[in-house]
């Protein structure tokens, strides 16, 4: 199985927060019809939503038991708040970022890079089991770009990431499964 490719997305934080709040409110109210509309469910999924004891129950099971539901939320979140900016061509990028000694020897840079790969920084509905995701502010993204570009002898895929980060404005989401 080939390793997925990391992509960068610019994040509209207010739009993402609004989507998160809207989703939460629908779960609070257990408003099945509104949830079906929000996520654009077809007849089959809509029937499952209506049959569940509570709408939120559908997201309390592992994604393997509810693949379509989670994918739908990610799709709508992406549509509402994310814009694709760049995708690496190298499946080795994540491994380089996590392991390459030149990066790891610089503790501050390593922490920033780890933030880019830390799923705890990402809303639950954007995480994918076993996948990679992380979110950084515009300033953090610039810091990572500068930190990486200050190093010599980095692998080509990391150099390309640094160039991409340097060319982007705003908060960024790193993800391997949203395309």
């Amino acid at each position: 199985m080939s390793r997925p490719l990391l992509s960068l997305f610019t994040v509209d934080r207010p739009a993402l927060a609004a989507f998160e709040e809207e989703l939460k409110e629908l779960f609070y109210k257990d408003d099945r019809d509104a949830l079906i509309t929000l996520l654009g469910f077809g007849a089959s999924f809509a029937e499952q939503v209506r049959a569940a004891p509570r709408a939120v129950d559908l997201f309390l099971v592992p994604e393997s038991e509810a693949t379509g539901f989670y994918a739908s939320v990610r799709r709508i979140a992406k549509k509402r708040a994310l814009e694709h900016a760049w995708t690496s061509t190298s499946p080795a990028l994540e491994g380089r970022l996590r392991e390459y000694d030149i990066i790891r020897e610089d503790a501050a840079l390593a922490r920033s890079v780890d933030a880019l790969l830390d799923p705890r920084r990402v809303p639950w509905f954007l995480r994918r089991p076993g996948g990679t995701a992380g979110m950084v502010s515009a300033a953090e993204g610039e810091g990572i770009a500068e930190g990486l570009q200050s190093k010599e002898d980095l692998p080509e895929e990391v150099v390309h990431l640094a160039e991409a980060l340097a060319g982007l404005d705003g908060d960024l989401l790193c993800h391997d499964g949203l395309l």
Binding site: P53, D57, L60, V61, P62, E65
Partner: peptide, 28 residues
């Protein structure tokens, strides 16, 4: 239900474990 939603948004991993053990959500 509001508590369940809050827990999902605060800590999805724990929410799924509680769903399996306390709330008895099907397939959790």
């Amino acid at each position: 239900r509001r508590g369940m939603v809050d827990l999902l948004f605060a800590d999805p991993a724990l929410a799924r474990t509680v769903a399996a053990r306390d709330w008895k959500v099907d397939k959790a």
